[in-house]
């Protein structure tokens, strides 16, 4: 993302001309609990953004609102120039209906911490179900796409098995393939390796790195893997208590953070980062 001028030492977003994602003063509360506070965040097409922050800081909620799994309490989220949760009627934004929301969210895909594969479907069907019934493409074409994608994540030989017969790392790779066959413009990955045994983390991160390297998909990666974030991200965002307190290129954020909260948070990960680089 050389085109983007990242402001190195400030907690404000870089200026992005045509963001694919734009959070505009987005807040979210659960009852009295304010989880996100007036988040402003623009993401450029093709940008890889890693979100870090301590537990409970609101990272998951940030992604879930974009996947329409959680409704913002206030503010607007724009996807590719269109409001996600709202519809413009006579120049005013009103809550959108399911049809509008589905159309806009078709550009978003998500991979979950717990994989969430469909346990009653084979691997192939897990990956073809949505292309056939949501995108409306033929079974033959969907299977062709699915097999290509499963090959890419190294599971082309597991088409007819069920999720329960796979390791966690394999299941997560299927989940990535399942999201990717929908060809989303933006992929959300919420701690996709946190539920995995340590020896299975690498295989999943490799797949994500490959997708990131292709540069076609915008990615929002919530992760505790600092080394990985440093490797793939164009920008790292540090969230603390529902606010973006610092953001910038990985080398700046990871090795020379300005904000004391970022420093404190990162000190716990220093060793990991040092050992990798």
């Amino acid at each position: 993302m050389e085109a983007i001028q990242l402001n190195q030492y400030e907690d404000i977003s870089p200026v992005i001309d045509k963001p694919i994602i734009s959070y505009q003063k987005v807040s979210k509360s659960f009852g009295d609990l304010k989880v996100l506070r007036e988040i402003d965040l623009d993401i450029a097409p093709g940008e890889i953004v890693a979100v870090i922050g301590s537990s409970g800081s609101g990272k998951t909620t940030l992604a879930r609102m974009l996947m329409t799994l959680e409704q913002p309490t206030s503010g607007v989220i724009m996807v590719d120039g269109e409001p996600l949760w709202h519809k413009s009627v006579n120049g005013k934004l009103v809550p959108a209906d399911e049809k509008h929301i589905r159309r806009v969210r078709s550009k978003i895909g998500m991979v979950f911490q717990q994989f969430n594969l469909f346990p009653h479907m084979t691997i192939l069907r897990n990956v073809t179900e949505a292309p056939i019934h949501v995108l409306g493409i033929s079974r033959a074409e969907a299977e062709e796409r699915a097999v290509a994608m499963l090959n890419k994540v190294g599971l082309g030989n597991k088409l007819d098995v069920y999720p329960a017969q796979l390791s966690g790392g394999q299941q997560q790779r299927v989940a990535i393939a399942r999201a990717l066959v929908m060809r989303p413009k933006v992929m959300l990955c919420d701690e996709v390796t946190s539920a995995l045994d340590p020896e299975l983390v690498g295989e999943v991160l490799e797949v994500l790195k490959e997708i990131a390297a292709e540069g076609e998909t915008t990615m929002l990666l919530i992760t505790h893997e600092m080394a990985f974030a440093g490797d793939v991200a164009d920008r790292i965002i540090f969230i603390d208590k529902g606010r973006i307190v610092e953001q910038g290129p990985p080398n700046v954020i990871l090795s020379n953070p300005r904000n004391p909260r970022t420093r404190e948070f990162l000190s716990r990960f220093r060793q990991q980062w040092a050992s990798k680089s």
Binding site: Q114, F118, V134
Partner: peptide, 25 residues
């Protein structure tokens, strides 16, 4: 509930989620 959420993430309609994901399970 995570099964419903997986369906939403694949942009299924609520009817598709019910009949293809929830009911068979």
């Amino acid at each position: 509930k995570s099964q419903t959420e997986a369906g939403i993430a694949l942009n299924m309609t609520s009817t598709q989620i019910m009949y293809r994901v929830i009911l068979p399970q």
